[in-house]
């Protein structure tokens, strides 16, 4: 079962994302801030990370940078899921190593399809 980490301080979106993914066979781990998500990633293994940008503690971009700089996590597919929809925000997300960037609010079917694309791209070490 593919393990997905979600880091989002907005409980509405966090629960929605969790529901969509759980119903489609993914094992989901939710965190409301970047610091706890980072702690989890260092101890446990997730296959995919879905990160909000505006979060307390470490924000989504900082967490993304940590993931890309970590030897064990650098290959993990990462999607940014955020209300920051400006082109500049999206460019910055990709620049720091995001594999995909989906602005909120999002279409549930597109979101699920995009997570499945990331799942296809998981690189087994």
């Amino acid at each position: 079962m593919t393990k997905v980490l979600i880091a989002d301080d907005d409980s509405t979106f966090r629960n929605l994302v969790k529901e969509i993914l759980s119903q489609n066979g993914f094992e989901v781990f939710c965190f409301e801030d970047g610091l706890n998500a980072w702690d989890f990633l260092q101890k446990e293994k997730a296959d995919i990370a879905i990160l909000d940008i505006n979060m307390p503690g470490i924000n989504g971009i900082e967490l993304l940078i940590k993931i890309r700089e970590n030897e064990n996590l650098s290959l993990m597919p990462v999607m940014m899921l955020t209300v920051r929809s400006m082109v500049e925000d999206q460019i910055s997300g990709y620049k720091y190593g995001a594999d995909d960037y989906l602005p909120k609010p999002f279409d549930n079917d597109i979101f699920l399809a995009k997570v499945k694309v990331l799942e296809r791209g998981i690189i087994q070490k």
């Binding site: 597109i110 399809a113 694309v117």
Partner: peptide, 15 residues
């Protein structure tokens, strides 16, 4: 539309 985009991705497109 959105459902077509989801379909492209589900068919195997990467983006």
């Amino acid at each position: 539309n959105n459902s077509m985009i989801a379909e492209f991705l589900n068919c195997g497109a990467d983006d």
